[in-house]
Design a protein around this nucleic acid. Sequence first.
DNA 1: CGGATTTGACCCGCGC
DNA 2: GCGCGGGTCAAATCCG
Length: 338
Amino acid sequence: MDCSSWVNTSLDLNIRPHHHMLNEEVPKKEVERDFFLSGKRSSVKEETSGALEDELKRVSAENKKLTEMLTEMCENYDCLRRHLAEYMRNNPQKDLNTTNIPSKKRKSDTGITTTTTNNSNSNPMAINGTSESCSTDEESCKKSKEATNKAKVSKAYVRTESSDTSLIVKDGYQWRKYGQKVTRDNPSPRAYFKCSFGPSCPVKKKVQRSVEDQSILVATYLGEHNHPHPSQMETSPTSGSSRFVSQASVPCSSASLSSSSVPATTINFDSKKSNSSTTNNNHTNTVDAAVAKNPKPKPDSPEVPQVLVEQMASSLTKDPNFRAALVAAISGRISHIN
DNA sequence: CGGATTTGACCCGCGC
DNA sequence: GCGCGGGTCAAATCCG
């Protein structure tokens, strides 16, 4: 209610809410007038301004802390990104795909795999698990290019209970299964789903268990939902968290990566090359790629899950959508407190 | 009974 | 041209 929380901060926490004006035009005149009107009221004003100052300090400190945390996360992210780039250089053959089995794959399937192997790093539009372009070096790419231009492709890895044999990835959307196949390179069946949000939504997904680790489900999403996330429709629009879920863009952002319900992430196929020089909007791709690389937990690297968590956290903090949601959430919280 | 799932058949693109 | 394999269709079945 009061204006104390609306300090201009480096986090841009204050997006000029209506309170804001209290600090500007209106108060000046009113304070002046009040001052002349009654001394009693001016003392009240003094008290209030003291409280406001305190509040201001508190919020500023809070803001500073948040900024520091953010900076730290960003540094971690950069560090991880460098490591990833280095790793990619050292292991150019290893793909993001969970199947390391070299297969004489056909191109239709590899509208996906081709995009992973060529220079899609120049794709500034790829955001959060999307691959839109095949590059130029393959003619055969034409068709998959068409396809991928129409349907964005993203991938998510979801750890499930080992006892859980279903091919269900809970990402918040409703899916209708329309087929199941056993593919050659993987003994476990692949399930095909369409978004059940009417025929208007073209999104499809494939779900299959990872070859290396049967407890990991690999969900491949094709296309973008043209409707809001169900959770967004159900919950109040003022809820910061729900807004975040919906803004986490694209398909599948809320699937869980582990049994402990770590928020999941979308994986970009071509992101492994999504270059490290890109800034801001693309950084998530690189990290997602790193995540994508890790679905098969290496026995000799027990720290992997933690790394995943850190990567996701870093990725999230770099995500403008997430930041916007964070700002909204914090702003809401602060104003709620007041 | 209606919607969701299952599953065998079919289609189509690709490699040989 | 043929065979293979992934993706989709649609009838049958299941389930609430």
